[in-house]
Structure formats: C-alpha cells, structure tokens
Design a protein around this nucleic acid. Structure first.
Lengths: 95, 95
DNA sequence: ACTTCGATGATCAAGAACGATATCGCCTTG
DNA sequence: CAAGGCGATATCGTTCTTGATCATCGAAGT
C-alpha cells in the first residue's frame, strides 16, 4: 500500500476528489512527522503508538571493506501496534 | 500527541469541524490497519514504511514467578522511518 | 506513462527489543 | 466530567535488529 491507496480509501469514505483526499492524507502524515520531530510520543488507541527513543547502538559494518565502523548515536522511532492491530495480526491473514 | 491532536491539525488545514476531521483521521488509520492486517507492506515516501514480519522469538518471562514461559510465534510490525523523518530527528529537538 | 529519487536488501557485530502478566496512568467515550 | 478500557512499564533470556554503503526496485511527481 502506498500513499495513493490511502487517498483512494479516503476518497471512497468521503465525497472528496483524489487531490483533496491526498492532501488530507499528507496533512495527517505531516502532523505525525511534526510530533515525532518534537520527540513527542504519538499514541493512537486501537492502532498503535510511536515513541522516539535515544539509540545507543554504536557499531555498523562497511560492506565494501567488511570492517566495523563507528556510528553516531541518534534517535530512533519505535512503533508498537495497539491491541486491535495485534489481534488482527494474530488471525490467519485471510480472516 | 493523540488522535484528537491530529484531528485538530486537520481541522486547521481544512474547513472541517472536529467531528469530520476525526472521522477522516480514523479513515486513514483504518486504511493502514486494513493493509497491515492483510500483511501488506505500507510504504509512504518521506514518512516511513510499515512491514509485517514473522517473529520467531519464542521465550519470555513471567514476572510474578520469574520463570521462563513459552511464547507463541506471531506477526510483528516493523516501522522504518523515511529519510525525511530521519533527517528531522537528527536535528537537536528544538530545531 | 516516464523519470527521478527514495527505499530495500545484504553483511557482521553489538546492542536492543520482545515476550506475558499485574498495576497504574491515561486516552476515549457517554 | 466521570467511568471504562487500553496502553505503558518492569523482569530476564533469547532472538532480532540496527548500522552504513551500493545496486536495484519501486514510489512519487511531471
């Protein structure tokens, strides 16, 4: 699924045209981006939650030279599915 | 940030009332849920991607009794932030 | 539809997360 | 506003994941 597919879904659920649906989808995504950029935790009941956590992993691998390389620490986004989503995933795909 | 906050953002970006904005947000989330439930990969450029992967972890811990417990295998959702989001997170919070 | 630019995949090592359950906080709803 | 239900947390072991880089596929835009 890509952004366009989501816009299509909105288009069906509302009376907007594709362009408008798309802009709405982007607005939602941008809201999430803004929140996460501010390192704010995003919690959506029934769907899941995004949390920004400091990452401590400090090593990586350079494939060309096959040697370890130092990696700067940074931020990571942790996504945890909510109960509903977990339940849905527990079912055999074609539920 | 919670669902209501996202609806607020939509409310500002459009001319909808809170209720309509909320229903739209839910429509977006439901689209994502549907896709993920079907084990479909969701890829949104600039934001991130969700991928459903089979988890093999098979052991856990019961806190009360402090003993190992068997854990059924299942599905996990992996979220990977896109380049834009990663870039934003690299900046010192109050960019 | 085509072009462009981004995302994925692979690798190796080390660090991190997940897993269940009980409790508390807090989001959600009437 | 109050009540209800869901989500987060902690524990400890095991497994997985990240991390960068290059090529390729695919998403997004024209």
């Amino acid at each position: 699924m890509i952004k366009n597919d989501i816009a299509l879904a909105i288009e069906k659920k509302t009376d907007f045209n594709r362009a408008k649906a798309m802009s709405i989808v982007e607005a939602v995504l941008e809201s999430l981006k803004t929140a996460l950029t501010g390192r704010e935790k995003v919690e959506i009941r029934g769907f899941g939650s995004f949390k920004v956590v400091a990452k401590k992993t400090g090593f990586g691998r350079d494939i060309r030279r096959q040697k370890q390389i130092r990696i700067e620490k940074g931020q990571r986004i942790k996504f945890r599915p909510g109960q509903e989503l977990k339940t849905l995933l527990s079912k055999p795909k074609s539920a």
